[in-house]
Design a binder for these strands. Structure first.
Lengths: 180, 180
DNA sequence: AAAAACGAGGATAAAACTAGTCCGCGTTAT
DNA sequence: ATAACGCGGACTAGTTTTATCCTCGTTTTT
């Protein structure tokens, strides 16, 4: 697939949901079901976001995640780096020093400065990261909510309420019948 | 490894050698040995560069590759796309349409325009590609040759001459002794 | 106290991708 | 005729990605 992975895609979409849910914590299972993605896979992503200080976790029943800071202060680059771990776009293998003419002992003028090819790749990487660093979750989140009708917010609210009630202790989930 | 692969790194370095060798064709084996990289792997890369119109191949003995156009007209982006095949930075899976609230049937306002997350990734990708499109092989090649002393050009010339003579029919390569 | 919903993290697995090898084919200069 | 070429397919090993499952300790509610 691509260099910006599905993990990042999942992570950002989850964070957008969290940015709309205020102080309420949502569990990774809630977020997975809400978006039709794998709960177990999502559970692997959130600890990375927490270590990066993007979300705050609360354990136990009714626990889950909430944003650790305002959505306007979380950039796409923050999320990409948190999940993918600042992998470089290009890993220079210093081919220039291997020239057979040097016979294994490259002269100083060859090693001077960084490799020209590497330099171009670093410029390209920086340009990409600069764009990602300038876009926050709030930028995308508010644009989406402007398109959504009023009813959407309440629909989501009731969906979450129903889900929480459905698993409320005292009323066994078995009563609603397992799928299949 | 990284998204811009070793194949691209090898390809660019080879093209830089070709940009310095004028009308003379160099075989992929020459280029591999000259740079201490795998000949068989390099042989997989060049057909892609040829199909993209970056190099011209000549078959048979003393054949090989030469640039199909001036180094100043070959950009890094040309090479990356030729070898990696214009893979996108990010593959949007349209998570937005999967919201459980929609129950499998996303309303029109959701699908309107491209996904906001995707939009940011496309901007980042474009920024990266713009940088690669603005750098030509000549930019990097001339910078390298400015650092190199006069002797380097002649050293390389004699290395190539020796290599060609060494395999000249009429003088069996066995006479020089196999390595090991 | 017990049950159930949480997060954290390890073990495992399938699929895709990357890097690299090997071989046989047709072509061409010597 | 030979040997150096490019071309292309089959194949392999290692890594990464995308999961799944299970156990553990934590926390809230009954």
């Amino acid at each position: 697939m691509a260099h910006i992975t599905t993990s990042v895609e999942y992570g950002i979409h989850c964070l957008l949901w969290l940015s709309g849910s205020g102080e309420v914590s949502l569990s990774s299972r809630d977020l997975a079901e809400l978006q039709g993605i794998s709960p177990s896979f999502l559970a692997k992503i959130f600890p990375k976001l927490e270590k990066a200080g993007i979300v705050a976790a609360s354990e136990g029943v009714r626990g889950g995640y909430r944003l650790a800071k305002p959505a306007s202060e979380i950039t796409f680059l923050d999320v990409v780096d948190a999940i993918e771990g600042e992998k470089p776009l290009f890993e220079c293998q210093n081919i220039r020093t291997r020239c057979a003419v040097f016979d294994g002992d490259a002269p100083d003028w060859v090693c001077e400065g960084i490799c020209g090819v590497h330099g171009v790749m670093l410029l390209a990487e920086k340009a990409m990261r600069d764009v990602l660093a300038k876009k926050s979750l709030a930028d995308v989140g508010t644009a989406f909510m402007r398109k959504a009708p009023q009813s959407f917010g309440t629909d989501v609210g009731t969906w979450i309420d129903d889900r929480v009630k459905g698993r409320k202790p005292g009323r066994t989930p078995k009563n609603s019948g397992p799928p299949g």
